[in-house]
Structures are given as structure tokens and as C-alpha cells.
Amino acid sequence: MASKSLDAGSDDKLAEFLRGASLNRSIPLRDQVYVLVRKAIVTGKLAPGAPINEIEIASRLGISRTPVREAVKKVSDEGLVEVFAQNGTFVADISRKQVEEAYIIRIALELESIKRAASTITTEQIQDLEDIINAQEIAVKRARFDEAIARDDDFHRYIAEVNDLTMLWKVVDISKAQMDRCRLLSLPSPGAGHETISQHRAILDALSRQDQQGSMQALQAHLETSLQNTLSYLDAVKASAPAA
């Protein structure tokens, strides 16, 4: 990425994603600021190249710069921002390589997750997963794509939590930061949301039969489809970009 300079609309973008933010002083501020900044980047509210002004963020939130600096460092570790010594901190471009690497991690971990879940999942847990899919379907029909993505994550997280594999999901969640940036942009594509829901139902069907191999195959097919859709989106964006 070339060095950046502050754009005139940066303050407006910053104000938009911080508007209505409320911090709980009883829990670490750095963790709350991290969630705010990460969400702003992942959802596209802060686009590639947008500046991250730590002083301005601290001022708007009414806190010291220290928790903001710690939060931005954590976001930087995930490859979401880049720091230029002479120019400042900016939202990073979406990395195709990091997207592919994230899927390698995600597929490996989630296959182990669902392998374990298939043999222990209960009828009540199957019903909970069905409720999540139904909520996701409603969100897609109403074009509430950020909500649909949240329910998508709920579905995968719940499977990990069937066997209390909460740390597994945390690793997946951190590693998939780059892919998440593509999801909100690519989901409005015709049929994309409905394809995901259909694949989730196939996964659920295998789980309901406690079919370990079938569950793993359905999940792998789902994640590989997601990867190909994401890479196709990135390739299309690159192809349409003006020559440097």
C-alpha cells in the first residue's frame, strides 16, 4: 500500500461509526474500543485507506489515548490496519492471501468442531440451530444483510459451543477478519444468501441424524463455496479497478 494522507471526509466517517457508542467503565476500555474499530472496518463503514486517528477517537469517546492505542494495535495484529511512521494509521486493503489463509484455518477447526458435535448434539440444540437458520432467512428476505451475517456467525459459533469449544470459535473469529470484510459486500449478490441458508439446512439435517461424516462433508462444501464466492468477488473488484 502506498503512503496515505488524511482525506477531507475522514472526520465525518469517524463521527459516523462512533455515533451512539457507549462505553462500560466496569470492563476494559481497550476491549470495547477494539470491538468498535474492528466492526467499523469489517462492515465497511471505514473503507480501505480511511485514516484511524487515535487522538480523535479518544476525544470523541471521552477516554485517554492509551486504551485506543492498545485497541488499534490489536486490530493491526489482525491485518486490518497498517501503520506508517510518517503518515499515520490507515485501514488496510483486503488481502487475498490472508482471506485464503483464514479459510484454511477455519475449515480445519470447524471440521473438528462439527465432528465432535455430531455425536453429542441434542434435540433441543438441533431446534436452536433451526431457529437461527429461520432468523437468518428472514434477515435475507428483508435485505438486512448485516443481521444475516450475524446469524450466520451464530450458527457456526453454536456448533462449536455444543461441546464447549469456545476457544476454538475465538480463534476462528480472529482469523476470519479479512473474509468478514468481503461478506457484507458480496452477500447482496443474487442468490448468495439463499445458497448459504440451503447449505446450513444441509448441515443441520446431517447433524440431526448424528451423521458425523455427512456433517463434515456438508460443512466443508459450505465453507469451500464461501471461499470461492469470496475469491471471485475479490477478483472482480481487482479487474474493475482503474489501472494505477
Rank of each mutant, 00 (worst) to 15 (best):
A2I: 12
S3V: 13
D7M: 15
A8R: 11
G9P: 04
G9N: 14
D11C: 06
D12L: 13
G20E: 02
A21P: 05
A21H: 05
S22V: 12
L23S: 12
R25W: 08
R25L: 09
L29E: 15
Y34G: 09
A40W: 04
I41M: 02
T43S: 12
L46D: 00
P48W: 11
I52N: 00
E54P: 03
I55P: 00
R60I: 11
G62H: 03
I63E: 03
S64L: 09
R65G: 03
R65Y: 08
P67A: 09
E70N: 12
E70H: 07
V72Q: 02
V72E: 01
D77C: 14
E78M: 07
E78S: 09
G79V: 05
G79Q: 01
V81R: 01
E82N: 12
A85N: 14
T89E: 13
T89S: 14
I94S: 04
V99D: 00
A108D: 03
E112T: 10
E112H: 09
S113N: 05
I114S: 04
K115L: 07
R116P: 02
R116Y: 06
A118Q: 01
S119P: 07
E124M: 02
D131L: 06
Q136A: 12
D146W: 06
I149E: 02
A150G: 07
D153R: 08
H156C: 00
N163G: 02
T166E: 14
T166H: 13
K170E: 11
D173E: 13
Q178P: 04
D180Y: 11
L184M: 03
A192W: 03
G193C: 07
E195L: 15
E195I: 10
Q199G: 07
A206E: 00
S208Y: 01
R209D: 06
R209S: 10
S215C: 07
S215G: 08
Q217M: 11
E224A: 12
S226C: 06
T230L: 00
P242R: 14
